Simulated assay, not measured.
Amino acid sequence: MELKHLAIRELVKESEDAPARITDRGGVIPTTEPIANQLFETLNSAFSRRSSLTHGSFNHENEEGYPFISAFESFVNAECNEQSFVELTEKSMSQLAVAINNPSAHTAYGGYVLFAMYASDRYEYMLIALVRDKAGIGFDNDLHPTEVMEINLDQLHQGARINLTTYRKKQDSYLSFIGSKEKGEITHYFSTAFGCTDVTPSRKSTGELIRAARDFCNQNNMSDRKEEVVEDVVSYLSKQRTEKESANLNDIENLFDAYIPPEQAETAAGTFGTFANKGPYNVSQEFQPHTSTINRFAKLKVKADNWSLDFNKRSLGDLNGSKDIEFDEDNGRIIINRLPSKVINQLREALEQED
């Protein structure tokens, strides 16, 4: 990844009833400093680890009500230099102060707002996150323990990431947000400040993608390969989740095109992305795969009074099939084929101990 611009500002809100204010502290941090890249990498990693993201786009129907939108468009359409970056951070801070002063965010507190513009693979991003202090322990000159305050970069209280590349191509879902709990309430003043009113949780995008995959197969003479396709989609989502990368409909569309029968290629190839992005599925163009939702489709755990089985769904099949685990519904049995030698030895030892 290439870090292009980095800035840090401070937003103070000392109590629920106190108004938010922007301090004069902070500003642009030279990206040539090693600590700048270390800070960014930690921040980006913390954002990427979050699976409960919401995704959406700007509310262009009410740009006057959300001044950040026009400021962002000016930034993207002009040369993205340090001056324009600073101007955008100033506008962002103003809108964050307005949003956090809204009664709906009365439980939220301020902190340090970090702005980073960077390039990763074929995409360009803007990452904005709010972090706070945490107490730590250090030593003074006489090696006496003393309390020190450090920035807790691992815990993001609010965050937003904008895919500039996707935005320039006028694709949907170029915005990703995380919210935080403040006294039991979920606050999303970041999405309010940046004019995003049409958001889709990553849990919903992950689940609806699987549903769209099955429906697409049914509608395009691919029913016989439906489970195989779904298995590949789930594997792709699992891989992206493991590598802390977003899932992208373009990638999944390429996966589908490999399965489309030749006679359907002219009408069906290159259409899955649009199919899944529109209603009734409304899958975000780009989203963070949701771990527990993936596991629900990828894994199966069955349990009786004195035993349990936990396995990948792709291992399960009907009786006399080719799967490792066969379900014999008529006789109420599960047959496990091709046991590894290690498992066979464990079972033999267990039986010998009983003797």
Rank of each mutant, 00 (worst) to 15 (best):
Q288I: 13
L255P: 07
D232N: 14
G179P: 00
R296I: 06
D251A: 15
I252G: 02
G270R: 06
W307M: 06
N277M: 07
G179T: 11
P201S: 06
G279F: 08
D305G: 01
N218M: 12
E228R: 09
G179N: 09
S202C: 03
I294Q: 03
F272D: 10
N282G: 04
T206G: 04
Y259W: 14
T197N: 11
E208H: 11
F190E: 03
M222D: 02
R203D: 11
T206W: 07
P261L: 11
Q240G: 06
L255T: 10
L249R: 00
K278D: 13
D251W: 01
A193C: 05
F194P: 03
P262K: 09
N254V: 14
K303G: 12
N306S: 14
N295Q: 14
A247I: 09
V199R: 15
S223I: 04
Q240N: 15
V230D: 07
A268P: 04
N250W: 02
T242S: 14
D224R: 04
T200Y: 04
V199A: 14
E182G: 02
C196H: 08
G279S: 14
K226E: 15
P201N: 05
D251F: 05
G195E: 05
L237H: 04
A304F: 03
N220M: 03
N248K: 11
R211F: 09
L237V: 03
K278P: 00
R225I: 15
N248M: 10
E286H: 06
A265G: 03
N220P: 00
L300C: 05
A298V: 01
S202A: 12
